[in-house]
Amino acid sequence: MAGTAIHGRLKWQLGTVVELVEETPNTRSIALALCNWHGHRAGQHVDVRLTADDGYQAQRSYSIASAPEDRNVVLTVERLADGEVSPYLVDELRIGDQVEVRGPIGGYFVWEATCERPVLLVAGGSGVVPFRSMLRHHRAAGGAAPIRLLYSARSQSALIYRDELTRMSGYPEIDIRITLTREQPGGWDGYRGRIDRGFIDLVAWPPADRPLVYVCGPTAFVETAADALVTLGHAPDLIRTERFGGTGT
């Protein structure tokens, strides 16, 4: 896959908040109107910079949740208890506010709908955010690749994009498998427990199909899932990972 060549400097630009969606009690999607945006690829991220009254600045990276075809750039941000920027974005930001943005950034953890190879997406918690971009891109571009998303969340209330994922699972090319690790509602007919080797063996495509695999989530989740995939025989060079998790451990 070709790299994303960035010509010239990535400049900071102002994004205006045009829509806010509470996805879960800890997570919110922020739609930004950007005047000087030249598009992105599904899976890329941006840097966001906040400036306090006293001039203090802080910046962090957030995955883009919208498809390249969508009108606005949408970020889905999870509030980190010890965070500096995320509590502001989740709790304080209002429609009409402006924040500084620069991007898109990253050219490896990306997916193009023109690629017809089966795609396996493995998400832990808010690691589902870049995959929402890929799924929406698949729909908007009329992609032919079969996509299977394995999504692990703590509980039903912690599921991000729940309704949208339910709708998407109605399309024949899209297969969504959700597992709830800590708490399942009555009548839950999905999977239970963490994504481990047994789970991946059960619900992922076999390695012989040579799917392109993307894994995104907290470090421990990504380590477990990527190790399991390699152990099961998936080629390491077909597995792309993105790890995050606040300050890490």
């Binding site: 490896y108 953890f109 990527a226 190790d227 990972t241 790890r243 890490g248 451990t249």
Partner: peptide, 15 residues
């Protein structure tokens, strides 16, 4: 910003 944790970042599985 300064962290006391030790975040991990890599593009693929851990060799």
């Amino acid at each position: 910003y300064v962290t006391s944790g030790f975040p991990v970042l890599s593009a693929g599985p851990t060799p």
